[in-house]
Amino acid sequence: MLSAYIIHLLILIGIYLILCLSLQLALGYTGLLNLGHIAFYAIGAYTSALLTLSGVPFIVSFLMAGIVSALFGYLLAFSTNKLKGDYLALATLGFTFVIYAIALNWTDLTNGALGLAGIPKPDLGILQIKSNAFYLFFVSITAVFSYLIINKIVKSPFGKVLEAIRDDELAVRILGKNTFKIKNYSLAVSAFFAGIAGSLYAHYITFIDPSSFGFMQIIPILSIVIIGGIASLRGTVLATFVLVLLPEPLRFIGFPSSVVGPVRQIIYALMLLLILMYRPKGFYGKVSLE
């Protein structure tokens, strides 16, 4: 029983890890203050769920979840590339609300507030992932690959250009780089991984509804990224483990779930607030958020 619970937590950590690392790429490394990351997560989850429910093989819909999210990420970055700072933050936040409204109201496609039930567990052709232990293995491999790819990106010359854009966009443009294009790619890659995380979530829980993708859900992810440290992948990994596990003891103390939910949000929001007040770089951060 306990080991099943630990496996469940580890799967959640794996999914959060992909989500937070991808936000780190956009927010920490490129300096795009994206408060709409949850929208990409939602797009990935819905794309993958809808495709598999209509009979598309899992591996195709898994990749499509990333690709469709990346497409939306590119479009969002493309249409907001003139905006900076707070204005970009609000435009991307708005994107979350629009996607949420669509998930809730386009009943023919998304089944509205009732959500999509009976999403099949992954079937990789040769082997089927039925047990949670096996699913954990699959999530871990995906998370490790995501880490390696994002790590490769930020260490590459392209990653250095991203960091230069964050520090001084005008200077990079003077050097002849098309910064708009680079930012579009960065957000697209970031959205791709968020979509993948969404797909993993949908096939794990096997049920999705709009309430999992509300605006409030950005707070845990944002807390992890900022507390771990801006532009630090190591910090993000560490913070994901700590922060996902942190509210868990509440369940053992025996609070009802109507208390655990708000208290969990309070913990995350309070931690985010305190870190912004006293150490805006985060624990392993190299730079301050501008």
Partner: peptide
């Protein structure tokens, strides 16, 4: 006092919004 930029203040205010809303909910 720490010369926080307007972006940091914005994120803090979003955190504050969620914090107080959760308290009211509780």
């Amino acid at each position: 006092k720490r010369k926080a930029s307007s972006v940091i203040l914005l994120i803090a205010s979003v955190a504050l919004l969620i914090l107080l809303e959760s308290l009211i909910l509780l």
